[in-house]
């Protein structure tokens, strides 16, 4: 029993490790992409039709590749970056790549919610496009961005469980190895329950934080 307990603790740690790192790295890529999508859009701060369309298409293509296929397709890249192709750290590479375009869209939709009048007011005060992004769009969209982050993190958590199929580590890995391959139903149920709890926790914390920092009420 203590063996199972230790295994689950290790699984939780691995899952959190993969999820948090992937989310952070995916935001490092996705946030600027989302900003570029908004800024280069028609009527945006710096309309650039070609770039906007090209970026949109690339993001859509990346988003339509099934995660399991991406996971296998990027193995050479994973190996080049991490030095190995299995384990939690290796899983971060495909997770990041698959989440970044999704996050770009989340960020795009959050920034588009910002009132155009406020942007116009900032322009009338002589704000440059960069200042408008940093001092108007991002701060004004903060609650919505935070809600988006809760969605992103829970989605990435779900994907991280899929990585168990190729020995990615974490709770998903345990669920597949013990629950699916060895028919240990209890282990699988406990693992799934843990995943549900973690998702609930992230969602709840994100929603509450978004509400608490929002000054519009």
């Amino acid at each position: 029993m203590s063996g199972l307990y230790e295994m689950l603790i290790k699984g939780i740690k691995e899952t959190l490790y993969m999820t948090l790192w992937s989310t952070a790295l995916a935001y490092a890529l996705g946030l600027p992409l989302g900003v570029i999508l908004v800024a280069t859009d028609r009527g945006g701060l710096r309309p650039m039709r070609g770039l906007n369309a090209a970026l949109g298409i690339i993001i859509n293509i990346a988003r339509s590749i099934p995660f399991l296929i991406l996971l296998i397709a990027v193995i050479p890249l994973t190996r080049a970056i991490v030095g190995r192709m299995v384990g939690s750290t290796a899983t971060i590479v495909p997770l990041t790549l698959s989440a970044a375009p999704f996050i770009a869209r989340l960020v795009e939709s959050s920034l588009k919610e910002v009132d155009a009048g406020v942007v116009q007011a900032a322009r009338s005060m002589g704000a440059s496009p960069m200042q408008i992004i940093c001092k108007v769009l991002l701060p004004e969209a903060r609650p919505s961005l935070l809600l988006g982050a809760a969605i992103a993190i829970t989605t990435i958590l779900g994907y991280s469980a899929m990585a168990g199929i190729v020995g990615g580590g974490g709770l998903g890995d345990i669920a597949i190895r013990y629950g699916y391959y060895r028919y240990q139903r209890d282990t699988m149920l406990i693992t799934v329950a843990l995943l549900v709890l973690i998702v609930q926790a992230f969602q709840e914390v994100g929603a509450r934080a978004a509400k608490r920092i929002d000054r519009r009420i």
Binding site: D115, G117, V118, Q120, A121, V136, P139, E140, R142, P143, I213, D214, R215, R216
Partner: peptide, 8 residues
Amino acid sequence: QFNLLMQR
């Protein structure tokens, strides 16, 4: 519409 920054 005043156009104030609502988060400030």
